[in-house]
Design a protein around this nucleic acid. Sequence first.
RNA 1: GGUCCCAUCGUCUAGUGGUCUAGGACACAGCCCUUUCAAGGCUGCGACACGGGUUCGAACCCCGUUGGGACCGCCA
Length: 441
Amino acid sequence: MNSTTRVRFAPSPTGALHIGGAHTALFNWLWARRNGGAFVLRIEDTDLVRSTSEYERTILQGLNWLGLDWDEGPDVGGSHGPYRQSERRGIYLEHAMRLVESGQAYREGEAVIFSVPQDKMVAFDDVVYGHIEMASETLKDIVLIKSDGFPTYNYAVVVDDHSMEISHVIRGEDHISNTPKQILLYEALGWEVPTFAHLPMILGRDKKKLSKRHGATSVYEYRDMGYHPDALFNYFALLGWNPGDDREIFTREEAVGMFDLARVTKKAAVFDMDKLNFVNQAHITKMPPLERARHTIPFWKEAGLRPEERSEEWLGGVLDLLEGRGQTFRELAEYTDYFLSFEPVKLRYSASDLDEEHRETLKKFFSTMLAIPSWLPEQLEVTAKSWCDANGVKLKDVAMPLRWALTGRKVSPGIFHVAVFLGREEVRKRLSYYGLVQESV
RNA sequence: GGUCCCAUCGUCUAGUGGUCUAGGACACAGCCCUUUCAAGGCUGCGACACGGGUUCGAACCCCGUUGGGACCGCCA
């Protein structure tokens, strides 16, 4: 336990929360929680034209959805505020003027610019990348305050991280080359330099920086595709980090218990949907039926079905039948649509593949089946098998037509379980619709 | 172009000089199970980028090459 650990996630509200940002936020959160420290949320809205409060709101909601809570931030306040850079202009100006007075910065137009000292080797020890150094003469002078009176990123980040007492600056590897500039500013201001830990980048399948071309990039798109936040959290944690043993499926709490910045890897990682799907499936499988049902409801509705007409227990029972089938809530809804309504079945299947002879055989079997005393999966299967033996047909020859008539698909869970869940009358109704029930019965 | 970073199976990774004929997971293929498809179980395919050193010994250390990436904005 180290109560002095203070980390921050500092998004700029110029777009939705996307994968890279969520990944960075996640690692900061993990480190804060692991050490019993504080996770601070700061909004870097110094780009007047691109920042909007609408984006700020979606980013906060996105973090919330992922289960990342913060201890200080623009909405919850805290002792180191304000937490929006646009509200901290006085602080930036004050320190910039100090540098002008000491001759370390100069004015040009309305702007304040820092003169980079020459012949200086700037070095730091990154927690993940190790020792890094850069000669100061490769750096150009640094703009501190723009002509519009707002601070630039490299300057504001230093003032804020210092005044918010940030102990560890955990951010993407793309900031490594900004770090020497910031260190020069810490030194000029006479401030202690925090510990830096840069995180590997996340790339698309083609190993290029993740962009729209690679498909979904915002966390909300993943929610809408049917991923569970716990699974996305789990998958993100695995990108650039591993617990050191073979554990790959874990909860947030377990991740907090195992996390260590020292185990973060250096190589950029490719975002792999196949693995995400696997992780999501694993989380769905472990989930209690009722919770699974609650997460699937929006997708049933989206498919035009009416889950609100059923109890959560019934819906959970439907999903239980899937036994591991489906990798997203969207697929869960899709794979079970025929339980909620006969309509999608009619749209998919017409029974035109059955010739008269085949129909007659099926009618005989179905009438035997519908007359079975106890309507249970095992009974249906035993009856079907013995009927097939007696009539010289294979079980699949009756099971597949039954599957088509009940589900409108060629794949489904065990069809006798489906039949039992649907109920004898509903099964009779569907078979009858396809003309597979003997009129006389 | 300058500076910086990275480099183990297709992908995520384990590995910090000998226990590595390199381990796990995803994906893929096959088998088992089986009324279909999954799930589950088993098996298989598959990598230390290359070249020099250092060392008794290198995936691990050093140098170079090549290949990726990032930054070089009064964007963040």
